[in-house]
Design a protein around this nucleic acid. Structure first.
Length: 396
DNA sequence: TCTGGGGTCCTAGGCCCA
DNA sequence: TCTGTGGGCCTAGGACCC
């Protein structure tokens, strides 16, 4: 299989090109989404000076993405806004406009599938494409088709994207990193030792901060060093599945197909509070938020046509520890009140002695509405804790 | 003053059942 | 009848991704 990996940079205001810009943070009620130009001309006509700056940002939140100009200051995705403001106070802050991002994401993907129909979603701004069967897909190792896709995306959306082409998804993803934000990189199987092995192990999608640090502590820093390890040695340290996968990945091996359809496994809604809340002192406010999360989750399920049998809660304490509890019911549901009741039972099994910074509600074991199997013969979550919770009053 | 939100997958332990 | 074993499901937590 030959695979493309394409990712787009979701910044489209030409007057901000080349400037440090971060997208992210948390929007407060009543905040204007973006400064608007005269006569409804939109943000594209707003002078640079009129955009908000990172130094003026107040409150919680993280960076969703940053331009390459901002990244030069050390600012990057998932960084706290306050830390980013210290590193690059002059950066322009744009809010996340989720509806607009979704619209452009759909446009980006439909442009690709019109050219190469076998495409796998990898989030809002990334896709894998199998172009084995696309006419002309092999010309110049795939470069011709990649350029065509790039141009089509730019013509349709005004967005640039970087593309990697390689024998499989794993290598294509790494190849796409080689020439950002608007390049095409081709990696052949025989390039493994010269172009992949010198890279840091963290460049492998799936090796994150924890595994990266553990490997570093074991003296393994590059992908080449990872490839040199005995697979059994990796299995003993990272487990059967991940250890074996790591070794295959280091050798550039990946036989996973480009999957064009998938069913959701879970849906959830969560929110971080403006200030930490206490289960007793802020009971009314927490109750309102909790109910709202349950209702929004129910709406999500109903809108997308799913019902769930497992309902759970997620809490994050003021010390950032996380606790989850979940319960699988006899029947499937997408009803807000039922979800609220089940989630409330889960909540009673969590310690609530510390202040909370986040509350979430999750629905799992999903099936399409109308395709529910019969009631489960066995029910779980009926232990002492769960029984304590049954039939008692609501916590919040 | 750190650290969002919405997901997937893996692991480990417990329980139940054949 | 008792015990051991293995599989499936549930639960909680963690790692990782965009």
């Amino acid at each position: 299989m030959d695979a493309f990996f394409a990712s787009v940079e979701l910044l489209r205001y030409p007057q901000l090109k080349g400037l440090p810009v971060v997208i992210g943070g948390r929007r407060r009620e009543g905040d204007a989404l973006l400064p608007q130009g005269p006569d409804g001309a939109g943000p594209s006509s707003v002078p640079v000076a009129d955009f908000a700056r990172l130094r003026d940002y107040v409150g919680r939140g993280v960076i969703t993405t940053a331009t390459y100009a901002a990244r030069q200051f050390g600012v990057g995705s998932a960084m706290g806004m306050m830390k980013a403001a210290r590193l690059c106070p002059q950066a322009i802050v744009l809010p996340v406009d989720a509806d607009e991002v979704r619209r452009y994401s759909r446009l980006f993907k439909s442009t690709i599938t019109e050219i190469a129909p076998v495409m796998q979603d990898r989030g809002v701004d990334e896709v894998y494409i199998d172009f084995t069967e696309v006419p002309g897909g092999q010309r110049e190792g795939g470069r011709v088709l990649a350029r065509l896709i790039q141009k089509s995306i730019f013509d349709r959306t005004g967005l640039t994207c970087s593309i990697g082409v390689a024998p499989n998804r794993l290598l294509a993803k790494m190849a796409s990193e080689f020439d950002k934000p608007n390049g095409v990189s081709i990696v052949y199987a025989q390039d493994l030792q010269s172009r992949i092995w010198p890279l840091d192990v963290r460049k492998i999608s799936g090796i994150g901060p924890k595994a990266g640090a553990k490997l570093a502590a074991l003296g393994v820093h590059t992908i080449g060093e990872l490839a040199a390890q005995d697979p059994q040695w990796l299995v003993e340290r990272f487990g059967k599945s991940i250890g074996a996968w790591m070794h295959r990945a280091a050798w550039g091996q990946d036989d996973s197909p480009v999957v064009t359809t998938s069913e959701p496994v879970s849906m959830s809604r969560e929110t971080t509070f403006e200030r930490d809340l206490h289960a007793v002192h802020d009971k009314a406010e927490l109750g309102r938020i909790f109910t709202d999360l349950c209702m929004r989750l129910a709406q999500d399920l109903q809108r997308k046509g799913y019902v769930a049998r497992t309902i759970g809660v997620k809490l994050r304490y003021d010390d950032f520890r996380t606790a989850t509890r979940e319960q699988t019911a006899c029947n499937y549901t997408a009803d807000g009140a039922t979800i609220r009741q089940l989630a409330g039972q889960c909540l009673r099994r969590v310690p609530l002695d510390r202040r909370l910074r986040l509350l979430g509600v999750r629905a799992g074991t999903l099936v399409r509405r109308g395709e529910e199997p019969g009631p489960s013969a066995r029910t779980y979550g009926q232990g002492r804790d769960a029984q304590d919770a049954m039939g008692t009053g609501q916590l919040f």
